[in-house]
Design a protein around this nucleic acid. Structure first.
Lengths: 199, 199, 199, 199
DNA sequence: CATGAATGAGTTTTCATTCAT
DNA sequence: TATGAATGAAAACTCATTCAT
């Protein structure tokens, strides 16, 4: 690798810097917020010159948006991959919940970033469209569950808000060190959420 | 150059300006975040000169902290006032939940502000201490409920995270316009949360 | 006056700083061009902090435009004031020419600024509209002169280009120190321009 | 990624890139000014990598200077080539004027570039020396004309400023689309300029 | 108390220039 | 030769804070 002695015009691995920038921005935006983190800070953490960021991203806004989309997609993929769409409804709901919290625990900073920037005014139309698009499958799942009279007769949005809101609460508590999320607790909590919404 | 209604030295109500500043800062911080809202913006919205803010608050940080503490206290008061501490446990848990969501719906901006600034790096030790202090009663209530084997044998923090996390989810969904929180839905949702944690 | 010891919040004469900024910007834009002069340079020459410029002008573009309009107006006023509109045509043409060169010699930097920024891409619609508006009277005068068969049957634009172009040439030569524009030479040159266009 | 027609090392015509750079710089400097046009812009327009420019020119300043000298020379050559130095004075003056405007109309961007950069602070001593050198022949011609009492007894600089200034005015008007410079108008205008200065 | 003009450090962004490939 | 990613100083502009009035 030989860090530090490389200079101008010596490209490292293809896209290496772009990744370093995304990684640095993620950490700083998650911790300090979009307006709280400055481009020089991002540059410094990415070990890159300030101007370099603009080779890869048009602006600070473009940077958050790229980051937001990447991880929103990543989350969606993790949720969708081999989803047991043919399994019984209870199984599907469990999968939804467990996959989401597993993702959160595997990528806590990324999840915190997504939560913090959800619906932020500097997200562009593309990011908003993605948000809408990725919300649909969960909604449909809950609609179906309700149609099958498996869950309580509440609006799908309310059911989602309850089950995933509870999950967010757990995740935040664990992030703040109030709670150690062992698999046992997770499984129990999943049971709680199921009992919250089941008919 | 025609002046406004009142001019320098013509005092309005005592503390009127301080209130205007707090109110303006609340709205802007809730909408744009701490770093996203500028002091000139706050001054403009409060219809006060930029310098005036510094008569009442030492700095921007002092301002958020004052705001944070005020509404954290306000929330705590609304929760505590005439709390049915002698009522059956189920009743107490319901009261906790219902009071919190009632507060959120009565003061949505204030609640959004508190949520957004929870654990923010610019909160000072006093604000953090207050946060800790106000968390205690709820924790104790859940501990007691668990000791009475009324709720599931999970850590109090997990039970809180689930019940109040679900509530936050509902509040956020209603704020984003996804869900209309009628009293009927609220009551049903409270039932859900109870079933989530009950033994 | 007490220069140098004044600081924050101590306003000098009303508009004093605005004038200083306009004056500094004029000198620098005339000498270095719009893109060649930086805002910090303007601030320094105006003995003002960089941020102060933005209290008076929205942007660098707004600043050039304000300057351009001011001096375009000033030039127009100097041309129009008590214009001998009833005098014989020859007299009117002489007045036009003499007033313009008198203005140029009285305000050489301002004239150089106007010439340099004429039709520049950063001039806004308002400035362009003013340019068009102020061109009209001269055009009409030459049209009338042509209708009266006093001048050569060339398009008014050509006659203007010749008579005022020659004048510009003289002014530039004098600015570059190639030529001393005594009143005698000016008068003779005016005669030349008259003979250039007369029938 | 698919590459362009040619790649590194596949040589085009000798000096092809240098020409492309000069051509691109000319167009951009003429339109946007020296400071208004960036090296990346020049590179892009020349379809050349940014670094390539520095193989041919030491710096941005070296580039304008090279350009300036080239076209100043070109203009001088066009003026001088087969100049009818033995013809009657009137004929020589006409030739001077007609050749200059013919050049301007044949190379309008180049002429605009020369005009815009005339006496610019980033022109180096060599360019300035060239400017002085090329001014001499015209000056001598007008001196001789004055000595022969063919033209008015004004300083040669004034005569030049008048005759060529008028021409510049016509050229600028035509560039701005105010005036169509037909050969007929040109000839008439040449007559005007002659009458301006003739004894 | 209240003002708001003024400040200057800090922000986002651009750009002339370099140099490993 | 030619490239273009990378640099970092400097540009335009913002903003928390001060202080004479």
């Amino acid at each position: 690798m030989g860090e530090g002695e490389r200079r101008r015009g010596a490209p490292g691995e293809r896209g290496e810097k772009r990744e370093a920038i995304l990684e640095a921005a993620l950490a700083l935006f998650a911790e300090l917020g979009f307006h709280g983190a400055s481009m020089p800070q991002v540059a410094e953490r990415a070990r890159v010159a300030a101007g370099t960021i603009y080779l890869y991203f048009e602006s600070k806004e473009a940077l958050v948006n790229a980051l937001y989309r990447r991880w929103k997609q990543e989350l969606a993929s993790a949720m969708m991959k081999d989803f047991p769409a043919e399994a019984p409804m209870r199984e599907q709901l469990r999968a939804l919940w467990q996959r989401r919290i597993a993702f959160a625990l595997k990528h806590p900073r990324e999840m915190a970033f997504l939560e913090l920037h959800h619906h932020a005014p500097y997200l562009d139309e593309e990011s908003r469209a993605l948000e809408r698009e990725l919300k649909a499958p969960a909604r449909e799942l809950f609609e179906r569950a309700r149609a099958q009279e498996i869950v309580k007769p509440l609006p799908a949005e309310a059911l989602i808000a309850i089950a995933l809101g509870a999950m967010n609460g757990l995740f935040r508590a664990s992030q703040e060190g109030e709670l150690a999320l062992t698999q046992e607790i997770i499984d129990q909590a999943e049971g709680c959420c199921w009992e919250a919404i089941r008919r």
